[in-house]
């Protein structure tokens, strides 16, 4: 609408110009991030890293061990197993958080009386605002002993409970409010006439909720899952506390120790020079690419799913 007004006064022109700068700077941060991390992250691949030799890109992407050889001497870093584990853990956590989250959303939107619904909504909001480090702490203090006991009961080895199952639970807890909140909004905005029609045709309320409402809201529900995956892929501190920081892999067993791209980036942050430090930026690039590709694939999938109307 601003352009519709005739010539801006001098002061307005100045304001506009100043504000434009703010807009441009705000928009350029993402480019800044991409630029600087690429610059720093590419160093290990193109320099000889003080005698350690350049990191081989192909091996870096496919290797099953974080570092072969001694630190600062070897350049045989690899994140192949980390990529697989990161994706595995993120999707695994969805097995808990997705059903629980969507069903909770269904309850809040369609079953709960108004009062209860608003209380539950506040609970979900509160859960969403709990910092990840607190989830990590509860994971270590509460879940790890349980997991350890469970592993013992099943006759399995476990490193004090550290590993896949712990990460799965912590990530599920963290993404639960995201899934619930977004699914709830999309379930609530389903056209009521669809539901009325279903009920009028003789379907029970339960049938209507599961076969009509959830189906009609699937696009929003899918979006909530995409956001949850994105959050799970990038989560660092909570995961690093419960993962056990495996240095090789990939490990898939529920009681095996594991690691992710982010937890490895946090490992050994005390080093501030040399290749062992620079390599973290390379892992950062990989993390960004993994998140980007996952998002692209899931969004394409969502479009396909969303277009098919039952």
């Amino acid at each position: 609408m601003s352009q519709k007004h005739t010539a801006l006064s001098k002061i307005d022109a100045l304001t506009q110009r100043t504000l434009t700068i703010f807009g441009i700077v705000s928009a350029s941060f993402i480019l800044l991030i991409a630029f600087f991390i690429t610059i720093r992250g590419i160093i290990p691949f193109i320099t000889d890293n003080n005698g350690a030799g350049a990191v081989n890109v192909w091996l870096f992407l496919t290797e099953t061990v974080w570092l072969r050889g001694p630190t600062f001497v070897s350049s045989a870093y690899g994140v192949g197993f980390l990529i697989i584990q990161t994706l595995y853990l993120a999707f695994l956590s969805l097995f808990i958080s997705f059903p629980v989250g969507v069903l909770t959303a269904l309850f809040i939107a369609k079953i709960a009386p108004k009062r209860l619904a608003s209380v539950l909504r506040s609970i979900v909001e509160l859960m969403a605002s709990i910092p990840s480090i607190v989830y990590g702490l509860v994971g270590v203090g509460l879940f790890l002993p349980w997991i350890h006991a469970l592993a013992r009961a099943l006759g399995q080895q476990s490193a004090g409970g550290l590993g896949t199952l712990g990460v799965m639970i912590v990530l599920a807890l963290m993404s639960l409010p995201t899934i619930t909140a977004i699914s709830e909004v999309s379930i609530r905005s389903v056209d009521q006439s669809l539901e009325h029609a279903s009920l009028a045709l003789g379907a029970t309320p339960t049938q209507t909720r599961f076969k009509i409402t959830l189906l009609a809201a699937k696009s929003g529900i899918f979006s909530s899952a995409i956001l949850a995956i994105g959050r799970a892929l990038g989560e660092a501190t909570a995961v690093s506390l419960v993962a056990g920081n495996a240095r090789s892999g990939p490990n898939f067993g529920l009681f095996n120790i594991t690691s992710t791209l982010t937890s490895t980036m946090l490992e050994g942050m005390k080093e501030t020079v040399g290749i062992d430090y620079d390599i973290r930026f390379s892992v950062g690039i990989i993390l960004m690419i993994v998140i980007l590709i996952t998002n692209l694939i899931l969004n394409t999938l969502k479009k396909k799913v969303g277009n098919v109307h039952a």
Binding site: S26, I33, G284
Partner: peptide, 30 residues
Amino acid sequence: EFAPINRVTKAMRNFIETLTGVPSIIYGLL
């Protein structure tokens, strides 16, 4: 209030929106 609605400002909005999806550890690198 001030931005014209065109492809450039739309792209700028998208860039800012993308920031929400960036994990915090990446901000640490920045």
